[in-house]
Design a protein around this nucleic acid. Structure first.
Lengths: 154, 154
DNA sequence: GTACAACTTGAAGTTAACTTCAAGTCAAGC
DNA sequence: GCTTGACTTGAAGTTAACTTCAAGTTGTAC
């Protein structure tokens, strides 16, 4: 009954499966100390990290991006309000951008319903910003993906 | 020089890779007739379908969902403005919902920066709506995923 | 009529983010 | 001290959405 949490406690309180917690640990997103017998023991701290991870995943960030964000937290001490604020703020612009993009898409959709176009070359729906000219001729009409997983793999 | 397009023409004009076009065909999202020699020949129509697919992917719809949407198009004739409008409109609510969710998240983020909480139980960031009570105790603090791929696989 | 780019196929590979499995070890209550 | 549930590990499996590959075929420009 120290301040340490077991895997199942963290799983229950964070909503993540135990297997996900082990995966996140392997991936360096969270850490855990060990009991004498080798079982994981988590600091309460980890719940805050996991809350952040859950929120970030929800916005569509990849684990890579999340790891990077979390890497900005202080290494020695327990992160405080200011630490979290700093990295949360960097998110804010991503959120704003995503909201903007969705709104553009929604409004284009309205226009498309109005004009019946949904054509490749003129419709804002498939060619939201005028960025076609900026890219190669091949990919001219594909909009920037909002979500990484909607992107063509290399 | 009929109205038929080759794979590479469609690829260039749609922005999709040829391999993606074949994949979409296998998956039943688009169709193609064949030349005498067995090569694919696309109707111009396919470009509109692909524009729709690109936009849908961009919003985060899965191919399954897109296939379902496209399934609502008429089978005999070329889809017209009204056909596209009908299925586009069904999207609109999804877009609105996603925008709303992101705005809630953004505003929660602001509050969190203000109060420094980012705690699991009280923070809107990790527990956006009061839906915790509605779900099982295990997953109480995980918000609904916005994007299917952010969801825990079964 | 030939060269060569564009096309065809099925099978296998890729990536992210996990889960599942098997075979064993630890912890805690009685 | 024993039982039982919680925990451990590494390896392999899963899903979506594609891409890559190899080996052969077609289309067309000269």
């Amino acid at each position: 009954m120290t301040d340490q949490l077991t895997v199942s406690e963290v799983a229950k309180r964070s909503g993540f499966a135990a297997s996900a917690l082990r995966y996140y640990e392997r991936e360096g997103l969270i850490t855990a100390s060990r009991s004498d017998g080798g079982q994981r023991r988590y600091q309460r701290d980890v719940l805050r990290r996991l809350a952040f991870i859950a929120a970030a995943r929800r916005v569509g960030l990849t684990l890579d991006e999340i790891r990077h964000s979390l890497g900005l937290l202080p290494s020695g001490r327990t992160p405080n309000k200011t630490d979290w604020s700093r990295i949360s703020r960097s998110w804010r612009s991503r959120l704003d951008a995503e909201i903007d993009a969705l709104e553009v898409l929604r409004d284009s959709l309205d226009r498309c319903i109005g004009c019946g176009c949904l054509s490749l070359k003129q419709c804002g729906l498939s060619n939201p910003q005028d960025e076609a000219a900026l890219r190669g001729p091949g990919a001219a009409y594909l909009p920037q993906p909002l979500h990484p997983q909607a992107e063509t793999a290399r």
